[in-house]
Design a protein around this nucleic acid. Sequence first.
RNA 1: GCCAGUUUAGCUCAGCGGUAGAGCAACGGUUUUGUAAACCGUCGGUCGCCGGUUCGAUCCCGGCAACUGGCUCCA
Length: 693
Amino acid sequence: MPNAEQPADRKTLDDRQKMTDLERLRHSCAHVLATAILRLWPEAQFAAGPPVENGFYYDLDLGHRISPEDFEKIEAEMKKEIKANNVFERIVVTREQALADAASGRLGGLGERPGNPSKFKIGNLADIPEGEPISYYRNGDFLDLCAGPHVMRTGNIGAFKLTHVASAYYKGDEKNPQLQRIYGTAFKNKTELEAYFTMIEEAKRRDHRKIGQEMGLFALDSEYVGPGLALWLPNGTAIVEALETLAKEAEFAAGYVRVKTPHLAREKMYKTSGHLPYYAESMFPPMQIDEVAPRRSELAAKKQQLWELCRSNGAAEILNVSATEQAALSSGQEFQLLDQRTRELDPALPAETKRVLLELRDIARALFQLPPAEVYYLKAMNCPHHHRIFAAEPRSYRDLPLRLAEYGTCYRYEQSGELFGLMRVRALNMNDAHIYCTAEQFAEEFRAVNDMYLKYFQIFGLSKYQMRFSTHSAEGLGKKYVNEPELWHKTEDMVRRVLIESGINYVEVANEAAFYGPKIDVQVWSAIGREFTIATNQVDFAVPAKFGLTYRDRDNTDKTPLCIHRAPLGTHERFIGFLIEHYAGNFPLWLAPEQVRVMTIGDEEPLVTYAQAIVAELRANQVRVKADFTTNKINGKIQDAEKAKVHTMLVIGSRDMEAGNVSLRLHGKGNIGAKPKADAVAEILVAIKERRG
RNA sequence: GCCAGUUUAGCUCAGCGGUAGAGCAACGGUUUUGUAAACCGUCGGUCGCCGGUUCGAUCCCGGCAACUGGCUCCA
C-alpha cells in the first residue's frame, strides 16, 4: 500500500548534509553492498540503505534467502568494488527521468532490467516532495536513487564487515511487504573496526541473561510462570531491595510520600483514563467476573428459544425485527423494544401468540435487570490508581505539590517477539511517582526531578546520558494523541523552556510522545559504551481532567492540577539488566548480592568460633554475609567466592586469629592484606552506607 | 504479531536412522589446608512438545511452544 503521508523520520536534505564523516562512509558502504549483491544476483530489488547507529543496512527483495554463509562471497565482491576505487558521482535528474529509469529497472541496478522495474524506488520517489531536487549516485555500473552524501571514492571505505541478516518491512510499515535486511558495519580503518568488534564481544561477555544465570539473580520460567514474567531469585532480590532503599531515601528527602495500590482495577478506570482505546493492545485481556453467570446463560437460552418459536409461528412479524437486527441489540435495547411492541398488541391476536410475546418480554426484562458482569484489567501503569488517591481526599493548593511515590508492579502484554531477557518483560516493577502541581510550580518540580536523575547518575558512575524529548505530531491528534492541540503546544513549550534553562543535554524528536502528553526518555551509556533507555518522564495535562481531579485554589475556585510522571530508576527489570552489563556483574559493595564471605583456613576450633563472631557481627549490621568453614583448600574456597563475584572476602587463618586480624581480599583486586578485625568491619559498614562505587 | 535461526543433564557443550556422552555443579566419602581448582566415588536426560515417515526417530518431514537476531512497539 503506498504511504500517502510523509514518513515521520524522513531526513530532509538539510539533515542529510549534517551526516558525520563516519555516516557518509557507512552509507557509501551500503551502496557498495548493493553493487556486490547485484553482481551475484542481478535481479535483486533494493529499497533503502541508510547508515544506522553501529553501521548500515540495505533492504532488498530477492528470491534467494541470503544467509551468513553468503557473506564471504558478497564481501569478496565488495572488496573488488572498493579496490576499483570508483568515484561516487552525483547526477541530478528530473522526476520524469527518474520514473523512466525506475520503470526500466535501472535504479538500484547495474544496468537496465527489462520486466523488472525498480518497484521500491518508485515508492521512494513518491516520498520526495515537489521542488526538492532528485539525484542519483553512481559508482561504477551501480546507479541508485539517492540524496547522498557520500565519500569521494569507494576506496575511501577503510574497513567493513557484514554482520547479520534480518527482515524488515518496506518503509517500516507492517502492511508493506517484508524485505531482507543485510546489516554491516564500516569504519575508517581496520583498528577501529576491530575495536568495535571487541566491544561487541565484551557486551556478549556481560550479557545480563548470562550473568544473571551465573549469579542466580533471576529466572525466566516460561513453562509455568509465563514468557516475560521474571522470577527474582534471592540474589537478584537483594539488588532489587538495595535499589528500593536508595529510591525511598532519595524520594523521602525530596518530599515525596509513599502509597500502595492494587495490581488491577475495573474497566471504568481505563475507560476514564483513556488507556482504552489508546493502549488496549498493550494490556492483558480483561478478566470478567459474573456472579450470576448460570442464571444469565439460562435466561439467554430461554430467550433464544422463544425467539425461534416466534419466528416459526409468525409472531416475530408483529415485532418487526429481523434475526440479525435482534442479535445486534443490547439487552436493554431488546427489552425496551419488546416492552414497547407488546403494549401495542392487537387485541384480536390469538391468546397463545400473545402469551409467547409477553413471556419473551418478561425474559428480556429479567435478563436486562441482572447485574452486569464486572470487568477488571491488570494495570499497565500506576497513574490511574494514583489519580484516584488524589481524588480520595479533598485537595487544597496548600497540598501541592503532592508527590505520590510507589514501586508499582505493572503488566503489559508485549508482543511475543518483543520479549528480551529482563530488558523487555510483561510484568515490571516501576520506580514510579506522580507529582501533582500547579502550572507555576511545574518548572521547579521538573528541575527537582532532573536533580534526582543527576544524583543517581553519579552514584552509578554514569558519565554519558541524554534526555530525549518526544513531542506530538499534528497528524496524530485524535488518533495516537489526545485531541488537545493547544494544550500540547503549551506543555511542550513549557518543557522545552525548562530543558533549555537547566542546560541539560537533550534532543527533540517529533511524533513519539505518550498519548496524554510529551515524554522525556532518559538514555544512558553503559561502561562499555552501549546505549540504554532506562527511564521516562511524562507531562500529563489531559488525564487529571478526565478523572475530574481538582484542588481548591486561593481564589476559592477549583482547578485541575498538572501531573508529572517520573521514573528515574525505570523498572527493576530493565535497570538491573542495564546494571549487570554496566558492572559486568561486579557490583559495588552496597549492591552486591553477597557482600562478604568469611572463610577459614581449615575447620578447627577455636578458628571457627573466631570467624563465626565476625559473621554474626556483620549480620547484626544487616550485611549480606556468608560463611565458608569447610575443609576445602583455601585456594578452592577463594575460587568459589571469586566465581560467585563476592565483593569482599575475609580469609581467616590461625595467624590472623592470634593477631585479632582478618585478611582482606576484594573481588577482582586480589589480596589486600591483613588488618585489625574492627577496622575491616567498620570499613565495610561505611562503604555500604555511603554507597561507594 | 511478522521474517529468520536455535532448542541434547542444573550450567557449558560433544554426538548419532539402531532408545545418549564429557567437563563443571550437586550428593557421599577421604583430605586439615595461607589467597583463583586436593583426591575417590555416586546421582543425574521421555534429546522442547505433538503428530507423520520408518521394522526402528534425539536424528528425516510437518505442526506448535519457548528462546535468540531483526521489524513493528517500548520502561
